[in-house]
């Protein structure tokens, strides 16, 4: 199915896309059909810089278990540091 569900958020950082490193300003997260991964549904993450055009994108298509493990690893790493809460 097409889930349509999409989370959008602003982000601050850099990513490496097809044209090299760039600042990324936006992220979308969605569980839907992949473009490449051999699965019916994947957890997809796009890190974007819309000002640079549609190709300014770092894309991930992860099997849901991998995505969950990645998310837990991220939170575990962040918990080890003093990270300011979101404004």
């Amino acid at each position: 199915m097409c889930t349509y569900l999409t989370k959008r958020l602003g982000v601050a950082g850099s990513g490496k896309g097809a044209a090299g490193w760039m600042r990324v300003t936006d992220a979308t997260v969605y569980l839907d059909h992949p473009a490449h991964a051999p699965a019916d549904h994947t957890l997809n993450i796009d890190l974007l810089n819309p000002d640079l055009g549609p190709a300014a994108r770092v894309a991930l298509e992860l099997e849901p278990r991998s995505a969950r493990e990645l998310a837990e690893a991220i939170l575990e790493m962040l918990a080890a540091e003093t990270v300011p809460p979101a404004a």
Binding site: D26, T28, Y30, A35, D46, P50, G53, P54, A55, A59
Partner: peptide, 20 residues
């Protein structure tokens, strides 16, 4: 409109980011 000339997957991502 969202992504003239872009690859289909980049265009789809741009359209989704802008609401479909």
């Amino acid at each position: 409109r969202e992504a003239p000339g872009a690859e289909p997957d980049d265009a789809a991502a741009a359209a989704r980011a802008r609401g479909g």
